[in-house]
């Protein structure tokens, strides 16, 4: 599984939505599943998946799937792998 696939499946697990629903424009509160509880679950899921500690500022900054991809780069995780 490449990095982007891993990220997609982390979203899918955390928000309990099908993988095909994880699209570029998926954002906080755009679906009922991505509410505040979903958000905290998602943060945890991404942390476990990539073995990183997400900084408190990034918890607020991560507001869309596209943001998550950008954020991973910041944690030195290459999306091309």
């Amino acid at each position: 599984m490449d990095t982007e696939e891993k990220l997609q499946s982390a979203f899918s697990r955390a928000l309990a939505i099908p993988g095909r629903s994880v699209t570029e424009d998926l954002s906080y509160q755009s679906i009922p599943e991505w509410d505040s509880l979903g958000h905290l679950t998602l943060i945890e899921e991404i942390e476990c998946t990539f073995d990183i500690n997400i900084d408190t500022n990034d918890v607020l900054a991560l507001t869309s799937y596209a943001d998550a991809k950008k954020m991973l780069a910041k944690y030195n995780i290459d999306l091309k792998n």
């Binding site: 955390a14 309990a16 009922p32 599943e33 979903g38």
Partner: peptide, 15 residues
């Protein structure tokens, strides 16, 4: 069951 509770009653599937 999970879908029924999350779609109809808006309970979060994770709970």
């Amino acid at each position: 069951i999970t879908q029924l509770l999350s779609h109809r009653l808006h309970l979060h599937p994770r709970t």
